[in-house]
Write a protein that binds this DNA or RNA. Structure first.
Lengths: 115, 115
DNA sequence: CCGTATCCCAAATGATACTG
DNA sequence: CAGTATCATTTGGGATACGG
């Protein structure tokens, strides 16, 4: 992807696609970032609890992608039973700041539609 | 979907999925909303120009979904040649307001990573 | 010009079982 | 507990051509 030849304010711009936007467009990604943002540090199982529609494998894939993109860190503790904690990087936190207003609005909006 | 049993600020919340988030997670949806937001009124062909990676059919599908969800209106002028213009509804504009900071950040972030 | 209809393919996701 | 591996399946999405 990586096709940014434009300024959003310029109606003549070409397009607004970017790698980050492409990642965000994948299922659960925005949700995952928000859950981590709220918890600060969170374990794999906790994420699963919060995202019951995501399968184990999908969640794992998403976390890998987020880590590879530099939005999330993974810390492993060699204990028995094993423990892993995910946390946002600084860039991830910046992203989260822009995401939370969106997600909160989406939730409010949906409740307005439903009620 | 529609599984909202939680408050984002409550670490004990269940999950944050919503129909809106599910729609936003589809390819090009966020981009389309932003392009319409910037142009205010925009024709189908113009959208295609701004999103060259999206096929005609996908773009059409997305616009239908956005219209069905109440974020976009479609106005058709019976002229020759035909003209159609898309515009954000009030809800769509609210969404756009939360989307643009995110998209602009994503673009800036990407340029920081690249340079 | 603005799509829809069709067909087809690749990628994405889910379910499950199994391992360190 | 925290995944990975595997397999099946769906869905998304692209290309194209045609209709209003």
């Amino acid at each position: 992807m990586t096709q940014i030849d434009c300024d959003l304010d310029d109606p003549g711009c070409y397009c607004v696609l970017s790698d980050v936007m492409e990642l965000l467009g994948k299922k659960y990604v925005m949700d995952i970032v928000c859950v981590i943002a709220v918890h600060e540090r969170v374990r794999f199982g906790t994420l699963e609890d919060h995202l019951p529609d995501a399968s184990t494998s999908t969640l794992s894939t998403r976390l890998d992608e987020l880590e590879a993109a530099g939005f999330v860190t993974r810390e492993q503790y060699d204990e028995i039973p094993p423990r892993v904690e995910y946390e946002l990087t600084d860039r991830g936190a910046e992203l989260g700041e822009r995401l939370e207003p969106l997600v909160e609005w989406a939730i409010d909006d949906q409740q307005r539609q439903t009620s």
